[in-house]
């Protein structure tokens, strides 16, 4: 071992703050590196492959119909990738740290457990955001190229022989454009992101007490599915008078304990070309923030006493 200057051992540890956003970001960026080096971004290739296959399909319908199909399948796939990724990656990260005992190393440094939890969540959310942005980019490119092609073809077909008035041509083009690439589609991507954020926070909570990653994944998927039955549960609750006590109890539990994922289906309306209500989007964003805070708090309640 080489001779080293005495300064190496000079006791001079830095003062430590009670909560540091810097430390949260260090954990977050390490989670991002971890996910990237686990080659998780490869699923983007699978998405690109789906889009390529989709582009080669020629369903028996109108140009607007084709665009609508491309849009619905690609956004649907994007949504699945996002929430599934949120569940799997979150369910793997913390148990993996515990299993590999990397958590020992991290928690023996001046790091608060809440900082660790928030850092992990932010890391996953960052990767989801980047993935969604890339997928949206691929999808936008595909939609735009198809849309331009159709518009050119329609214009050619309609203008040949001057059979159609300018308004009719315009109406036909507008029909295609409505199903094509529109700015509002970004809001549909936001909806997927918000949903994935809630899914990730619920999975983090589950993984703080779960015995295995598999358990967290299965329970989180179950909660996800049940979370889409809120409105159905409400209508049962309100309109079915002959419910047994048990059914009623179950429905009430679903409403109270399970997050309402159905709300996040507002992307479906946007994809179908409905006008976006920005005030509702803001409310959804706010609600998501509250979900994150509550579930991180619940995770901390379990995690703070956890012994390693």
């Amino acid at each position: 071992m080489s001779q080293s200057p005495p300064s190496v051992f000079e006791p001079a540890s830095k003062p430590v703050s009670p909560f540091s956003f810097g430390r949260v970001m260090v954990i977050a960026s390490s989670s991002v590196t971890q996910l990237v080096r686990m080659k998780t971004f490869y699923f983007l290739l699978a998405f690109a492959a789906i889009i390529v296959v989709l582009m080669s399909l020629n369903p028996p319908t109108t140009p607007a119909g084709v665009l609508s199909t491309i849009k619905r399948i690609s956004f649907g796939t994007m949504d699945i990738f996002a929430w599934l990724f949120a569940i799997v990656s979150t369910a793997l990260l913390i148990p993996k740290d515990i299993e590999d005992r990397t958590l020992y190393t991290i928690l023996s440094k001046p790091v608060r457990r809440i900082e660790y939890l928030i850092g992990k969540l932010l890391g996953v959310l960052f990767v989801i955001a980047v993935s969604l942005a890339v997928m949206y980019g691929i999808c936008a490119l595909a939609l735009f190229s198809r849309e331009s092609l159709y518009i050119a073809e329609e214009l050619g077909a309609m203008q040949a022989g001057a059979q159609y008035s300018a308004e009719e041509v315009e109406a036909q083009i507008a029909l295609i454009q409505q199903q094509g690439l529109r700015l509002e589609l970004g809001i549909a991507v936001l909806a997927s992101f918000l949903k994935s954020a809630v899914v990730a926070s619920v999975t983090i909570f589950l993984s703080t007490f779960a015995s295995s990653s598999l358990f967290s994944i299965i329970i989180s998927v179950l909660i996800f599915i049940i979370g889409h039955a809120h409105t159905m549960a409400t209508s049962f609750w309100l309109y079915q008078t002959d419910n047994s006590l048990l059914v009623e109890l179950i429905l009430k539990c679903v409403k109270i304990f399970i997050p309402n994922y159905q709300l996040y289906s507002f992307s479906h309306g946007i994809i179908q070309g409905e006008a976006v209500s920005y005030s509702l989007v803001w409310q959804m964003t706010g609600l998501t923030g509250v979900y994150l805070v509550v579930f991180i708090f619940l995770s901390l309640l379990v995690f703070i006493d956890k012994e390693f």
């Binding site: 390490s30 020992y104 190393t105 001046p110």
Partner: peptide, 27 residues
């Protein structure tokens, strides 16, 4: 703290591991 079997992220390099730990300590 030096644990019995040092538990680190295997995907990080030696320098990255020190960087990660250093940043956690405010460097």
């Amino acid at each position: 703290f030096l644990p019995e079997n040092p538990y680190f992220y295997k995907h990080l390099t030696g320098a990255e591991t020190l960087k990660f730990c250093g940043k956690l300590c405010g460097f």
